[in-house]
Amino acid sequence: MAMSEPIPSPEARPDVERLRGYSAPLEGRRGLLRLDFNENTIGPSPAVTEAIRSFPADQIAVYPEYDGLREAVIANLQSSPAGLAQPLSVEQVGLFNGVDAAIHAVIHAYGASGDTLLTTSPTFGYYAPCAGMQGMAIEAVPHDMPGFRFPLEAMRTSLQRGPKILMLCNPNNPTGTRLSAENVLQLATSAPDTLVVVDELYEAFTGDSVLPHVDFAVHTNLLVLRSLAKTAGLAGLRMGFAIGSAGVVDRVSRVTGPYDVNSLAVTAAFAALSDQPYTDDYVAEVLRARDYLVTVLTRSGAVFHCDGGNYLLLWPRSPAQQVEQQLRDAGILVRSMAGKPQIDGSLRVSIGTLAQMQTFWESYRQLDG
């Protein structure tokens, strides 16, 4: 019997065919010191572990329920030292399968072919493919140099052209660039027809959140993204939130599945939110470790940049990708920023505990000291 010719697969939408997807080398990381993806490096609260261990087996067969989780998020935000500018209702909190899913939903809900997504450059790499799959144009404004300062005047000029969405990573990954809440609100006020999305995944390491200052009844075009990945240690379970006016949260939630957030993530989120002291202690340890690493790098004459977030940029004397591989061989993962504008040739190094950063420094200085 003659072999049939293979049937060509159908083409996707042109926007998807042209798309270069976001990729992250996440395999082969177990058992290594993970300083490459800005994760919590010690794991979640024991309360989270116990909650997962106690999860009833029969509930795995049941669709997840979210009763009380939005209220727990609001209570957690309200009890923080800075608090909230205005009380939040449960309709103002959206639940997502990680902030990546929230970003995708925001752009899916508000971005259309021919619209513009405005952001900075370099920034988190997932914004661009999400915008691209919607056929959006992407305008990325370079940071002001030296020092990777936020390009405030250039951003104001770009906003006058009426982009559909402004994505602000604050503090910015990977440069650590910070923008004050006052300036965030000024940008949102100046562009009422633009949805201003503030990605605050690393806010805990700087305290720059806009939430203690924003009244969503006034700034209805502002949406804040938060996560339990970087601080509370739930990156593997995917738990993200979107906080804003009820109308915006509703529209963004419409384009997600009804049960996108799984039951284990919900259980873990309740436990993590109930043990805020654990998260606070971890953040404080990261800040101590960051101070240590900045001190030893400065004394050594290394070229680096450190501002906000649980990470810094480091320019080794040897080629960055070579040093990245040598560190991996030594059991330490960092991430090369090869090809990224303004930071090509650098390594992004996540900050963990003091002991972990001492381990990193001992290996790094022998390789490139």
Rank of each mutant, 00 (worst) to 15 (best):
Y259I: 07
N262V: 13
R238D: 14
A204C: 06
V261N: 00
A229I: 08
F270Y: 11
T231G: 10
V210N: 04
L211C: 13
G233L: 13
S245V: 01
L237P: 10
A229Y: 08
S274K: 12
T206E: 13
S253Q: 10
L264R: 01
L264H: 10
R254W: 14
L237A: 04
V249D: 02
H219L: 02
L237N: 04
G240Q: 07
D199R: 03
Y202A: 02
L223V: 11
A271N: 03
D250K: 15
V266S: 00
K230Y: 14
G257Y: 12
F241K: 01
R238A: 14
P212K: 01
G233T: 07
H219W: 11
G233W: 07
V218F: 10
D215M: 02
V197L: 10
L237E: 08
Y259E: 13
K230C: 13
F205Q: 10
A265W: 12
A246V: 06
N262T: 12
S253R: 07
S209C: 11
S253Y: 08
T267P: 00
V261P: 00
A269K: 00
L234Y: 07
T220S: 14
G240W: 12
D260F: 07
D215G: 04
V252M: 12
L264Y: 09
V249Y: 01
V196P: 07
D199M: 08
V196A: 05
F216I: 05
T256Q: 09
D199Y: 12
A229V: 08
I243Y: 08
A229C: 09
S227Y: 06
V261H: 01
G244F: 01
D275S: 11
L225Y: 03
D215P: 03
A265S: 06
V224C: 14
L201C: 14
L201S: 09
R238M: 15
Q276K: 13
A232H: 13
V252Q: 11
T267G: 00
R251K: 15
T256W: 10
A217V: 11
T267H: 00
V218K: 09
A246D: 10
F270K: 06
V266K: 01
A246L: 05
A268T: 00
A217R: 14
P212S: 08
T256M: 09
F241A: 00
F205W: 11
S253K: 05
L273R: 03
T256Y: 09
G244I: 00
A204Y: 05
A242C: 11
S274F: 04
A271C: 08
S245K: 01
V214R: 10
A242T: 06
P258C: 09
F216T: 03
D275Y: 12
R254L: 15
N262L: 13
F241T: 03
L273H: 08
G233Q: 11
L264Q: 09
G207W: 14
V198D: 07
M239N: 02
L234C: 12
F216Y: 12
